[in-house]
Design a protein around this nucleic acid. Structure first.
Lengths: 207, 207
DNA sequence: GCGTATCGGTACACTGGCGTATCGAAGACC
DNA sequence: GGTCTTCGATACGCCAGTGTACCGATACGC
């Protein structure tokens, strides 16, 4: 789903809109930034307008309301949370994923934090949050586990396999409350080595 | 820290306050209930006043402002999140803890959810949240692990040991996003059996 | 019983955000 | 170049919540 959907290119539809796809991305980026900084409730249309240097009327013309704008921002900025990872071993993949998630934790964790409560009260928002942030990462992790099982590194019916993504996501969300800071590369790598891999029956030495 | 602190008993101080400790508990319970239902931002002093059938003036007289009221509510209702658990084995303890947490998940998880974002923006609130909700449970879990190590069920330097509480808390916080519902008894028990215990090197059969 | 202080309730001013309407300016299209 | 549409900006009405002020009622201490 590219930004073209909300602002069609001139070739496809002769609608004259000065909101180019690039401009839409600016709006979306501003919205997500402000969400990260202050949360969903504190996000105001006036704030978005002033940060993007546009009038409120533009926002309401294009997106109708604040919830719709946020949903559009989530859908419109599908950027790869996790790069493609395939180190050849499950342990290597998970460590690499821990590094990637940790490196991006300053970006994605606050966003999830900011939206997780609001999402539980609005089905559309929950759906957008899951599709934009949760599911892609989930699929990536589950793919790693599946490939590991295909290679025979772990049994296909390893009971811990289905919890790997939940463990990673959980670590991201638990640490801020436990220690007051986001889960970074170092923490997540230790978590993978000391908790996830052992739960799969992979010793820390099997790299 | 008993409610006496905010509403001293008649024996200690001759101040005449009609807000008895029991009445204070009613206020605190209402605040926490409303937090669970709608979150921190949506909590209004007017709402608290109307639910507790008191005037706003009473709230402002006693607690000064909304943040202070919330902090007081958290401090004032220190109820045991986890009952005392000692089944004699670490696996048994953790399974029992999973049951207890799952049974109370309708109570504590929404509260953590509601406060976790607001807490990251207010040090006082974060502190109160950790002291009231996080640390007691954390200590209980860590105690279980420590006892298990003393009994020799796991090595004292088991690298997964320090992550047990983070994993449990993480599971509580991850599932709502992954599956859209709170972590209940069934889920947490499976999580303990299939992820946490294996990470500690305890097979699912070692009950 | 009487004085007093606090309670519950309401009215008030103030703030801030939402969503609409309006308007001049600037770009797009012919 | 002329027309038309959309943009950016501002002003407005509306609503909701905060925190204060006031008031009668009521329970307590003496």
């Amino acid at each position: 789903m590219s930004p073209q959907e909300t602002a069609p290119g001139p070739a496809q539809t002769p609608r004259r809109s000065k909101i180019t796809p690039e401009r839409a991305q600016e709006f979306y980026a501003a919205v997500l930034d402000m969400l990260r900084e202050s949360g969903y409730e504190a996000l105001t249309m006036e704030g978005v307008a002033s940060r993007t240097r546009c009038g409120k009327s533009t926002l309401y013309r294009q997106w109708g309301s604040k919830p719709e704008l946020v949903v559009a921002a989530l859908h419109g900025t599908r950027q790869a949370l996790l790069p493609h990872i395939d180190t050849g071993s499950l342990a290597g993949d998970l460590r690499e994923a821990a590094r990637a998630i940790g490196a991006g934790s300053g970006r994605d964790t606050p966003l999830m934090h900011a939206l997780s409560h609001a999402a539980l009260q609005s089905p559309e928002l929950l759906c957008a949050l899951r599709e934009a942030l949760i599911l892609p990462g989930l699929a990536t992790i589950d793919d790693m586990v599946r490939r590991g099982a295909e290679r025979g590194e772990i049994p296909a019916d390893n009971p811990a396999a289905e919890f790997v993504s939940a463990q990673l996501l959980g670590a991201m969300r638990a640490r801020p409350l436990l220690e007051g800071k986001y889960a970074d590369e170092v923490y997540l790598t230790r978590f993978v080595d000391n908790a996830i891999l052992p739960s799969l029956g992979l010793g820390a030495s099997s790299a």
